[in-house]
């Protein structure tokens, strides 16, 4: 995709008629995140608690390995670690998953895709940041093409430190994420909607060829 693809244009149809195409309106939902929807809670506390319990016990990971940590996630589904028994499953599409794992360093090019994938996930969604690279850049801190701090671009719920973290520490990270959700603190999506302007400003500052809508629904 390039900047040209999202420009407004006129296309001549097969019958000679003129069709106006505005890709930002036709192909994407151009709405910005709705803070009210993101913070929507049931008025009955016990139902909200029950929903939070269900959310925490059914974590569907988006199968998107962003850095070297992508390969480190594979052992989790092998017989030795077997995350399925904790209610953690892997989905192939952002629409159906609610946990996004940034696994390791993020180059600017991948950050663009990560933002798109994150924004396409339905809320409430959680973000697990893996490895030192997402915290302060890790060993790529002075690289010309990898970001240093992930929390400037996307709201992070749980960090798992290490380079790379062992599967055991990733499991511990999942445990603390579960506890966070059960306590009702897994509100990363609401935070993102609240500070949307700030996040967008940071994202646009480093993604120079911004060729997508501001909010990719």
């Amino acid at each position: 995709m390039s900047l040209k693809d999202i420009e407004k244009r006129t296309v001549i149809g097969p019958m000679g008629e003129e069709i106006e195409i505005d890709p930002l309106r036709d192909y994407y939902c151009a709405a910005t995140p709705d803070l009210k929807m993101e913070q929507r809670k049931s008025s009955i506390p016990i139902i909200e608690k029950f929903a939070n319990w269900a959310r925490s016990e059914s974590l569907w990971i988006l199968a998107f390995g962003t850095g070297c940590g992508g390969i480190e996630l594979r052992p989790l589904v092998t017989p030795k670690y077997d995350v399925y028994r904790f209610g953690i499953q892997i989905r192939a599409t952002p629409r159906q998953s609610n946990v996004f794992i940034i696994s390791g360093y993020l180059s600017v090019k991948t950050l663009k895709r990560a933002i798109r994938a994150y924004e396409q996930m339905p809320s409430p969604k959680y973000l697990l940041a893996l490895g030192s690279c997402t915290i302060n850049g890790g060993m790529y801190w002075d690289s010309y093409n990898t970001i240093n701090r992930l929390d400037y671009y996307l709201p992070v719920d749980v960090y798992v430190a290490g380079c790379m973290p062992r599967p055991e520490s990733i499991l511990a990270g999942f445990d603390s994420l579960k506890q966070l959700i059960k306590d009702g603190k897994g509100e990363g999506a609401a935070k993102y909607a609240e500070k949307f302007e700030w996040y967008k400003k940071n994202q646009k500052q480093i993604i120079k060829d911004w060729d997508m809508p501001d909010y990719n629904w």
């Binding site: 709705d34 929807m37 993101e38 929507r40 029950f50 929903a51 269900a54 959310r55 016990e57 059914s58 569907w60 092998t78 017989p79 077997d82 399925y84 028994r85 209610g87 499953q89 609610n98 339905p122 809320s123 409430p124 999506a189």
Partner: peptide, 21 residues
Amino acid sequence: RRGIRFFQPHIDLIKNYSFRT
């Protein structure tokens, strides 16, 4: 492997119905 829990599909269903957006 041990596999998913017996009531996991129920939880998944509740979670899917309780998404906000």
